[in-house]
């Protein structure tokens, strides 16, 4: 184990895989000498050279579109969309090409590609640079979606995403990039589709991912002071979703709170709630609660933004309403 930041973790995951397989390359805006908008790719250009760490024009459509073609032709591209907010620019390439090619071709194509991108509010970046759009992607069969919350998961999920033979969208949270933690050295893989219990508890299950894991953990700590034992489950991969971990936890707790930074309506929280209502109704002894952003764009004003975001306090309040 060694101390690393989240960004160092994800970069380590990329480096280790790239060293092993020369078919892996990375392309995106300012991923080269600039080292990425938030320093995610710093040093990779120096280590792997311009043949494999490639600066592209500002052309998201062909950044993702070329990855589909390159993957179909045998490479393993990692491409970057600087902010998930720009995903609209390349949505056809994700929605109709990457996601469906294998199925439409009767299983004859393989698309091992990773789309790295960043999400998240909290830095005053306003409505077009702060969104959490994972539910857009989980609604598309054929795409896997990964959202790490810790440096170790950032590393292990990156390795798994690169090794996977499907299109994987790997979403980094801007607010977590500098977050430090213990990370296994050398090769380390966190399997896709496997949740992690970030804190064990017996009274209530809190499902949260990405930056919200840390709000949930802080809430669990505060709740413990008041005698409520919360279990925090981080699905880590949103598609495929590890429903068994949630159902197992509910067998203990009987109460479910889902926390996400994305807006409420159409958010993945609704899907998880429906899933539990369907397959775990008898396990519940209280209505399911969701703590999410409100249904509005992310405001610029720091004051409004702070209230926009789901927080430890909002989670504590939601949990207490169940007791």
């Amino acid at each position: 184990m060694t101390q690393m930041s989240y960004v160092e973790g994800l970069r380590d995951g990329i480096r280790i895989e790239m060293k092993k397989d020369s078919n892996i390359y990375m392309a995106g805006e300012d991923v080269g000498i600039f080292g990425g908008c938030f320093g995610q790719t710093a040093g990779l250009f120096q280590e792997f050279g311009g043949e494999r760490i490639i600066d592209t024009p500002i052309s998201e459509t062909v950044i993702v579109g070329h990855a589909v073609g390159a993957a179909a032709a045998g490479l393993r591209p990692i491409v970057e969309i600087m902010f998930i907010d720009f995903i609209g620019v390349c949505m056809d390439e994700i929605l109709n090409q990457a996601a469906k090619m294998r199925y439409m071709f009767g299983g004859k194509a393989k698309l091992p590609m990773v789309i790295r991108t960043t999400c998240g509010a909290g830095v005053g970046a306003a409505a077009q640079h702060s969104q959490s759009l994972e539910a857009f992607l989980t609604h598309i069969p054929g795409i896997k979606v990964v959202m790490p919350a810790t440096p170790a998961d950032a590393k292990g999920l990156m390795a798994a995403a690169i090794r996977d033979d499907n299109p994987v969208v790997y979403i980094e949270h801007k607010g977590l990039l500098g977050f430090k933690g213990e990370v296994p050295e050398g090769e380390y893989v966190v399997p896709l589709g496997k949740a992690d219990i970030k804190r064990e508890g017996t009274d209530v299950t809190i499902v949260a991912w990405s930056a919200m894991v840390h709000q949930a953990l802080a809430a669990a700590e505060a709740l413990a002071q008041e005698g409520i034992s919360a279990e925090v489950i981080d699905p880590r991969t949103l598609a495929p979703f590890d429903k068994d971990s949630v159902l197992q936890s509910l067998e203990k707790t009987g109460k479910l709170v889902i926390v996400h930074e994305a807006v409420k309506t159409g958010g993945l929280g609704g899907e998880i709630a429906a899933l539990v209502a369907d397959e775990g109704f008898d396990l519940l002894d209280a209505p399911i609660k969701r703590v999410t952003a409100p249904d509005c764009p992310v405001p610029f004003s720091s004051y409004l933004e702070a209230h926009y975001l789901p927080s430890q306090d909002k989670i504590v309040k939601a949990v207490k309403e169940m007791f």
Binding site: D85, A126, H129, S301
Partner: peptide
């Protein structure tokens, strides 16, 4: 990001607009 700003503080530097002056916005 103040209430008296062009966009009531909701837009910030990257989204300032004044439709009456024909300014259809900065853009992110």
């Amino acid at each position: 990001g103040k209430a008296s700003g062009y966009c009531k503080g909701k837009g910030g530097s990257m989204h300032i607009a004044d439709v009456n002056l024909g300014i259809l916005g900065a853009n992110g």
